[in-house]
Amino acid sequence: MIPQAVDYKRAGSVSEAISLLAENPDAKILAGGHSLIPAMKLRLNSPSLLIDIARIPELRYIEVRDGGVAIGAASTHHDIISNAEIQSRYGVMIEAGELIGDTQVRNVGTLGGSIAHADPSADWPAALIALNASIKVEGPNGAREIPATEFFLGFFYTALEEGEIVTEVVLPAPAAGSRSVYRKFMQPASRFAIVGCAASVTIDGGTITDATISLTGVSADGAFLDEAVGAALIGKSASLETIEAAANAAAEGVELNEDHYASKAYRKHLAKVYTKRALAGACGL
């Protein structure tokens, strides 16, 4: 399988990438390429030009900022899961990142590429939603910052506008007493999530004071914030009964995904099971 003929240019800076993109409407941004190149090999995607942003120095960093962590969009999955700062404070990022693809994919695939691609079964979107992260993008009209909940809009569909690229992901400082986890039921061939649940729960004196739960793989529209589950937790004691009751509300009213491996009914069931498991982990139960 060979892609159709394509031009290749490596951008030296974000601004160069943005102007190349503006000049070539058929162009595609290439970072790790682990979603785009397989699609090009199958000739499902045939851009005229690839703009490689993987080596732009200003896009590959992980730094503590304002108590949180800022991650450059060209950081690889491996960069993220091997970062001590993230390891110590954002369990969900580590647990989700470690379950993306395989070693080789994690060595090349990037955070920015993954979220811009917005596969409805991808792991990062759920983690970012659960952490209340925001995504910085830049385009011909300048830069803007979009909350994760407003960035993922549907099936391979994001808030990115024509000519914009993802530049950074900002993880806010985790609240005291919070813990975040990721639990995933994977499709055994692709290793994508049939159901992935990211949960961030804050407990104060045995009472849940904040809870953000996001599910991926469940909906054809991709990762979403499950507000009903969160609402069912806040103010309650962190007990198995609480989380079981809350998990039973998972994925209600959602347009469910289905494929040859898992039906809608089974996905919905798994959403509840994996929400329960994630909450148990986040509550330390």
Binding site: P188, A189, S190, H260
Partner: peptide
């Protein structure tokens, strides 16, 4: 894990390693 599945039109719906699961 394994099994070739067809849809009603005779298309293999899991004809790649992204869909056809083998033991890892």
């Amino acid at each position: 894990l394994e099994g070739v599945e067809f849809d009603g039109n005779g298309q293999i719906i899991n004809g790649s390693y992204m869909d056809y699961a083998m033991p890892r």
